[in-house]
């Protein structure tokens, strides 16, 4: 883990417990999740007990304690999307990738998440890939999307 970035995040914020959530947000933004070492460092620098950092990080859904995949498939489970068959999308994604929501594939490329609303109910059901919304999704369209992402992954592996 690259600690220099963490140091720059914590710079000028030492001994300021009220900055905890801000710091966690910045760490989440940079690393994609909140690593254990970062939590220990935050606890030391801000003067907050470690359990307090862990408690806050585990309380909010916005903070992730495990690394996510390179491609995050987010299925909206809001009311509008739900009545238009969001569950079918979730079933499609979980069966195709072989992981449950909140998990990461073994190669670390994909993870699935479900959220309560993405705020685009008229376009539902929605499945987004790394923040790019896919509107009026069907299980078939989602399968194609995941297949195309899979091809990209394979290409990258070849080039690397």
């Amino acid at each position: 883990m690259n600690l220099s970035k963490l140091e720059s995040i914590l710079k000028g914020r030492s001994s300021q417990p009220h900055q905890l959530i801000e710091v966690l947000h910045d760490v989440q933004e940079h690393y994609g999740y909140i690593p254990e070492e970062a939590m220990r460092e935050i606890s030391k620098t801000l003067g907050v007990p470690l359990i307090e950092v862990y408690r806050v990080a585990s309380f909010y859904k916005a903070f992730k304690l495990k690394p996510t995949g390179k491609y995050v498939i987010t299925v909206c489970n809001g009311t509008a999307c739900h009545v238009r068959g969001a569950q079918l999308l979730l079933d499609q994604a979980t069966s195709q990738l072989g992981i449950k929501p909140g998990e990461v594939t073994d190669d670390g490329m994909f993870s699935i998440e479900h959220v309560n609303c993405l705020g685009a109910c008229a376009l539902g059901p929605i499945a987004s890939e790394n923040g790019t919304l896919g509107h009026h999704m069907t299980p078939a369209k989602l399968r194609k999307l995941i297949n195309s992402l899979n091809r990209e992954v394979k290409k990258e592996v070849k080039h690397a």
């Binding site: 254990e36 939590m39 007990p49 470690l50 359990i51 307090e52 950092v53 862990y54 408690r55 585990s58 309380f59």
Partner: peptide, 30 residues
């Protein structure tokens, strides 16, 4: 937290998943 000032236990998670846990799910040196 109050008698021993150790803070080696706390509530983690929220809603129906709230439970008592040690920091980072392991016993800490403090």
């Amino acid at each position: 937290a109050e008698l021993w000032h150790a803070n080696a236990l706390g509530f983690v998670g929220r809603g129906k998943d709230r439970h008592v846990e040690r920091p980072l799910n392991m016993r800490q040196e403090f």
